[in-house]
Design a binder for these strands. Structure first.
Lengths: 144, 144
DNA sequence: TTCCTAATTGAAAAAGATTATCAATAAGGA
DNA sequence: TCCTTATTGATAATCTTTTTCAATTAGGAA
């Protein structure tokens, strides 16, 4: 089901601002904060209020069409979410983000932790940080 | 090594505000945002500027004496960090946070993802969300 | 202990980020 | 094409976080 269908299915309208935000996220390689989405919209010549960006991102998040990426320093940004549960690797060099799946790989750990703590676990957050191939090369060049 | 020693070791002074913030985090069961730390300090009768809270938390984070906990809606808060690498489970009911270790359990997944993506992974973020034993009971009671 | 110096603090102001308000607009069914 | 209602966007209000800078204080030296 396309994001447009999901939106309508959930009782929301398919509007210009929502289209613009989705298009921008779709073209972005790195996660974007609201103000960055706003700026890109302006650069692309779209007229779009900052408030709409906030509202749209909140809505898309609620519908799981976008996901939050957390940075170690404490801020967070939005990326497009593929259907299904995914995790992200974030490049510390260029901030590029790539998805990967593997929720099953956590099953053993989840079970162990439930056992040990008595918590009932129903969700998790997993992100990897590192360097993408391009940034690894850049670093290698700089040193040599 | 105590946090006091770590601080001094790193070239910082052991001051009243830093002591207060550490004491508050030490007594907290749930993660605290800066304004919450500030309020508790006031309640405890301590005089302490909000700016110092921000500065102190940033410093403690840098020294790995505290850790960030991320909430799914996008905000983050601070908890005391035990020495060594730990992860957290956060109760969606009462926000209580408990630490658990198990970085090794991610080794297989990390290796697989490095292989598949070509990224060089050097850090990760893992958190579980769920209900603590007390909140499970509370829910059970409410239903019955 | 007392003095000295540099790190640290705190108050106020500035800057940024987010949310509320509400009249004007536009989506999409009739 | 028209109508109804969700949605938008400009402004203002609120929070949150950072800067700035004079006053304070920690901790080594005398």
């Amino acid at each position: 089901m396309s994001w447009q269908e999901q939106l309508v299915e959930a009782g929301y309208r398919l509007t210009r601002p929502r289209r613009i935000v989705m298009e921008i996220l779709n073209n972005a390689r790195a996660p974007l904060v609201p103000s960055a989405v706003f700026k890109r919209a302006q650069c692309d010549g779209h007229s779009l209020g900052l408030v709409s960006v906030y509202r749209t991102l909140a809505l898309l998040l609620e519908l799981d069409l976008v996901t939050l990426v957390h940075f170690s320093e404490g801020c967070h940004a939005y990326v497009l979410a593929s259907p299904g549960h995914h995790h992200h690797i974030i490049c510390s060099g260029c901030e590029e983000v790539i998805e990967f799946s593997g929720a099953e790989d956590l099953d053993a750990l989840t079970a162990r932790v439930q056992q040990e703590t008595g918590f009932h676990i129903d969700d998790h957050l997993l992100q990897f940080y590192g360097l993408c191939p391009a940034c690894q090369q850049a670093v290698a060049k700089k040193i040599s």
